[in-house]
């Protein structure tokens, strides 16, 4: 049986907290970008213009059929080269964080767009007709009538997706970026205490995600009542 030794954790807390900040930064940015770009994709998908709806369908289906690990590897390959060309950054500059952020944002918006599309479709068609009858344009009807109702219905699903997204950020490990999990792994590897650090990381993720899921459930109950 293993002899546990947790002593390397207290000293490493500041380093782990720095990692957690990276995890949270990526999560927050991907949620915001995912919802904005996801909403646009959903509107395109539902649009009467064939080209727009095909583009959105292709985008969403492509991102949804490729593993996140592969998507991240793609962006770690492409983004630095783009930055080099566009911003004239010196080759070899550390672009892992922006690469991860772009990758997550574009990947997650495919998933968000499906949630948002279902949300828009859950609003009865009569609502759009009623908005048009009041003289609203398509844009006004969407912005003032349909989307607010759709988002209210979607909040629990959006929160659940946010929890999944937060868990997924651990995959930036493939680029050796020190997010919370990466930091925990590095400390464990350095001190020969991988067992303890991995269990600690698991416990932290569990407490955070489980609490968030309880909040989402409570919101759902209150909204449903």
């Amino acid at each position: 049986m293993h002899d546990f030794d947790w002593s390397s954790i207290p000293g490493a807390l500041p380093f782990l907290w720095d990692g957690m900040k990276i995890s949270l930064e990526i999560t927050a940015l991907a949620i915001v970008a995912g919802i904005v770009w996801g909403t646009l994709l959903a509107l395109m998908r539902l649009s009467r213009f064939r080209a727009l709806s095909w583009f959105a369908a292709g985008y969403v289906n492509l991102f949804r059929s490729v593993p996140l690990v592969m998507v991240l590897l793609w962006f770690f390959l492409i983004v630095p080269q783009l930055l080099e060309i566009l911003l004239g950054l010196a080759p070899g500059t550390d672009a892992r964080l922006p690469s991860a952020m772009v990758g997550f944002a574009l990947f997650e918006s495919a998933y968000y767009s499906e949630i948002i599309r279902a949300g828009i479709q859950s609003v009865p068609k009569g609502q759009i007709a009623a908005a048009h009858a009041l003289g609203m344009s398509y844009g006004q009807a969407m912005r003032l009538v349909v989307l607010p109702q759709a988002f209210r219905n979607m909040v629990p699903l959006l929160l659940t997706q946010a929890i999944i997204l937060f868990q997924d950020t651990s995959l930036v490990y493939v680029s050796a970026l020190a997010d919370f999990f990466g930091a925990a792994y590095k400390v464990g590897d350095r001190d020969g205490r991988l067992v303890e650090l991995l269990l600690f990381a698991g416990a932290v993720y569990f407490v955070l995600c489980y609490s968030a899921s309880l909040l989402a459930r409570r919101y759902q109950k209150r909204a449903g009542a």
């Binding site: 929890i163 868990q167 995959l171 999990f181 991988l194 067992v195 991995l198 269990l199 489980y210 899921s213």
Partner: peptide, 26 residues
Amino acid sequence: VEAFRNIPLLVQLFIWYFVLPELLPA
């Protein structure tokens, strides 16, 4: 369900691969 849904897959994988063999009977 709660345990396996609220810990990232990557962390679970590392626990199965690196941690569990250490915790099993020798």
